[in-house]
Amino acid sequence: MGEVIVVTSGKGGVGKTTTTANLGAGLALMGRRVALVDADIGLRNLDVVLGLENRIVYDITDVTGGHCRLRQALIKDKRFEGLFLLPAAQTKDKTAVSPEQMKALCAELKEEFDFVIIDCPAGIEQGFKNAIAGAEKAIVVTTPEVAAVRDADRVIGLLEAAELRDPKLIINRIRPRMVRAGDMMSIEDIVDILAVDLLGVIPEDEMVVISTNRGEPIVQDEHSRSGQAYRNIARRILGEQVPLMNLDEGGFLARLWRRMIRG
């Protein structure tokens, strides 16, 4: 029996979809069977981030509407053994799926997968309510900005009201140099304010843009810092105690060296 985790944030553009894709791929790399569910109906994105956009035949509303079986709609990612995607519908709206249907869908998926990870749409309306309906655990993604942390606080309140206790926090796109200069809120600042457990921190990394351009999750890039951060988070989800990575990116030479070995 698997675990159903929803990835949410409130604010858009903080990296929910990238996080969902990389945690899914990361857990699959570690030998787990993972189903990723794109719950952002009408604004389908997870397929593109994963590079699976050309393989979609059926989507989530075809499953809930009984037009196909769940197995037919799941796209197998050939690069990651055990990773599957259930894509969102692009032409329907958020009301095309009901919370009850989501619950039934998640129950069916977790029979077969170790992890079911749901990519929640931005906002706190119907799409959000649908996305969290079948979840047992929640991950909240934020960035070190006032607006993103504020929305994360609101979402944490709504998750707890929906009996999704103890959501775990991921701080994305942190810039260690700006934190050191006192121009960006630090990990401690954000954890203090939100008063939730920290699951991981992902440094700002241009390589994410490049890998997303290619449709290849960064988590498989051995040399990138964000890839390392996602691998660490995947290991923590599996119950390992992994210390936070050293965010100090080093001097000019260290950065140059990393750039060279990346090829």
Partner: peptide, 10 residues
């Protein structure tokens, strides 16, 4: 440390 706009943000 520069101006420390993070304090303003906080």
């Amino acid at each position: 440390e520069s101006g420390g706009s993070k304090e303003i943000a906080k």
